[in-house]
Design a binder for these strands. Structure first.
Length: 601
RNA sequence: GUCCCCAUCGUCUAGUCUGGCCCAGGACACCGGCCUUUCACGUCGGCGACGCGGGUUCAAAUCCCGCUGGGGACGCCA
């Protein structure tokens, strides 16, 4: 009788031994169809090579979450995924060692998760979505959730963006136990402040021959990529500098020659990744590039910094977007080079645009600030994010953060990429508005949203001299309180531009607006006047359709100041609505226009 | 192009692991009725999906294989 005792079954015991579900179908014909049977954890651990049944990825959620090396009185359970490293453990240099509390000589590992945003733009709803899942997972297991800023891209990272991200996550009600703003025992939590740590670790890899210096120029790499791509090969570094002797590389580096450090990646064999939801994923090493670890500016790339920090900060579970699956082998390799234990990986499905592509601000508002300014309540947005790819066991759709934490179960994550549907978000928000707020609380919400000194105070200078009675305010400045505005298409039309020219002009404006920093009156004016010139239209005419798109009216408050008050996100959204009203941009146009705009610089 | 991931109503999803309670349940959107001075809310109803083809089985949305489709990755970005 099979091991399922509930029913009579004639199958022999062990017949439940099955290939793992869903994942890796395409490859399972290669060897043992029972995927777990050939995972390296089994063979390296020296146990029998016979296939044995194991929980499927989804079922895994019902097992011990904290199983890396959990101390429970009288029992030590060990992570079945754990593989002894192929290399000797790193020598225990104080700072190189991960923090690990002990009780009677047994390490206690609590669940520690993190969100690690890169401060290179607006706070993204995708960041909030991943943060939410990490938060819930950690909280549910009584663990910690931390925030780390991944600002190793010196060119694109800004403090302004970092502040905005922190502010938005706080607005949503997500809190972290350690982070750049509140500190913690494993800081600093800003990668730009940890360069020495990465360099130290990079040196270690260099010393052990797991990494090498590369002196190739970006030009050579560009050409290489082109050749490879046209030849239909997998693009990737060809290993030229790998052939350099250590002595030569060292002396060239010493002479100050610009170079990067790349990791050594095997050219044969297969990397096995364990994903909490997807089971075993196999990627051939040839598919993995010899990734740059340390850039020529001396700062690490994501891959190095992320692995080093996750280890040093004691991260036990990495919940991140699906887009990272293909670079997971690099991370697996780095952990093994350092001799560190791999955290458990779990790749969440990506949020999608209505056309199913990865959520992008070109096709959908993605900034948390946009949703805040549109008048969505933080708890409604967070709730909505919680029903992306996840559902309550009782299928209830409205739930608070605390309720989500209590009921959270990773195995309830569904893998199909969810489309971010603003209509459903609006419905949910409406429910919060009428079900969760007393009239007094409602008043308070409206006040904190826009009827406050800060926001109204910014509007007043623009309207005070233009109205005769206070009651004129609604007519003149109502658009400041609206999310989107209605306009007449004929009000967009100007002399000297046909419909296509007009659409192009508005699209140029939308693009430029994303680049203008700070988003203030003067730089905006400068940028838009430049665009008018580019389009061959007088500034006065050029600005009119923008004006109409943003305010809904041909006459209103001064444009640049108005834009400043409305903010980037609302401006972008309204501009897009106007463009769509005139006829949405085609892919062809996008390519052509982008080129024309970039050509000007 | 190469590699990887994924696949239930238009959308979010339950059910898939542990095959039978499923000729598939809920929600959004849409359409219609009721309630109502209007609208909204509420309420009742309608429309609407297991991508296709094989296999295993007494039995397949559920397990296996193939195909198709969608997505992601292929940076001195993260």
């Amino acid at each position: 009788m099979c091991s399922d005792g509930r029913r009579r079954c004639l199958r022999p015991a062990g017949s439940r031994c099955r290939p793992r579900t869903r994942s890796g179908r395409s490859r399972s014909g290669r060897s043992c169809p029972h995927r777990i049977g050939r995972s390296s954890s089994t063979s390296r651990a020296g146990s029998t090579s016979r296939c044995r049944p194991r929980e499927t990825p989804r079922a895994a959620g019902r097992f011990d979450e904290t199983r890396r090396a959990v101390y429970t009185p009288g029992r030590l359970s060990v992570n079945p995924h754990y593989r002894p490293a192929t290399l000797r453990p790193v020598r225990p240099l104080g700072r190189l060692r991960a923090p690990q509390p002990f009780v009677r000589g047994v390490p206690i590992v609590t669940v520690r998760t993190r969100i690690a945003p890169s401060p290179t733009g607006d706070p993204h709803v995708g960041t909030a979505y991943v943060a939410l899942f990490n938060y819930c997972f950690a909280r549910q297991h009584g663990g910690q959730f931390l925030l780390r800023i991944e600002d190793t891209d010196q060119v694109r990272s800004t403090r302004e963006s970092e502040d905005a991200i922190l502010k938005s996550l706080k607005w949503l009600g997500l809190t972290w136990d350690e982070g750049p703003d509140i500190g913690g025992p494993h800081g600093p939590y800003r990668q730009s402040e940890r360069s020495a740590i990465y360099r130290e670790h990079c040196d270690l890899l260099l010393e052990r021959g797991h990494a090498f210096r590369c002196f190739c120029t970006p030009q050579r790499l560009d050409e290489l990529r082109k050749v490879q791509q046209s030849g239909g090969q997998t693009a990737g570094y060809d290993g030229l500098c790998r052939g350099l002797s250590v002595a030569e590389a060292q002396s060239r580096a010493l002479e100050g020659e610009s170079h990067v450090v790349r990791m050594v990646v095997p050219r044969t064999g297969t990397c096995t990744i364990n994903d909490r939801l997807r089971g075993t994923i196999e990627i051939d090493w040839v598919q993995v590039d010899m990734q740059v670890l340390l850039k020529s500016d001396g700062l690490p790339t994501y891959h190095l910094a992320n692995v080093v920090d996750d280890h040093l900060m004691g991260i036990t579970h990495v919940l991140r977007g699906e887009e990272w699956i293909s670079s997971a082998p690099k991370h697996v390799l780095l952990y093994s080079y350092f001799g560190w234990e791999m955290p458990e990986l779990c790749h969440l499905p990506l949020l999608r645009n209505p056309d199913k592509s990865k959520l992008s601000k070109r096709k959908n508002p993605t900034s948390i600030v946009y949703y805040e300014r549109m008048g969505y309540l933080a708890e409604a947005l967070l709730n909505y994010l919680g029903m992306m790819a996840w559902s309550m066991p009782d299928e209830r759709e409205k739930f608070s953060l605390d309720e989500m934490v209590k009921a959270f179960d990773l195995s309830r994550v569904s893998l199909g990429g969810p489309v971010f549907d603003q209509a459903k978000l609006s419905w949910l928000n409406a429910r919060y508005l009428r079900e969760n707020l007393t009239p007094e609380q409602f008043v308070e919400r409206v006040r904190t949203w826009a009827l406050n000194t800060e926001y109204l105070g910014a509007v007043v200078p623009l309207v005070q001299s233009r109205i005769e009675r206070l009651s004129d305010l609604g007519g003149l400045a109502g658009f400041f309180l609206q999310g989107t505005v209605e306009f007449r298409v004929e009000d967009l039309v100007i002399k000297g531009l046909d419909q296509e020219g007009l659409r192009r002009a508005l699209q140029f404006t939308a693009w430029r607006l994303d680049e203008v920093t700070p988003f203030k009156s003067e730089p905006l004016g400068l940028a838009l006047r430049q665009l008018a010139e580019l389009c061959g239209v007088k500034a006065k005419d050029f600005l009119r359709p923008i004006f109409v798109a943003l305010t809904g009216k041909p006459v209103s408050t001064p444009l640049f100041e108005t834009m400043t008050v409305l903010g980037r996100d609302l401006c972008r959204a309204r501009l897009r609505l106007a463009i769509e009203a005139l006829g949405p941009m085609t892919a062809k146009e996008e390519k052509k226009w982008r080129k024309e705009l970039d050509g000007v610089g």
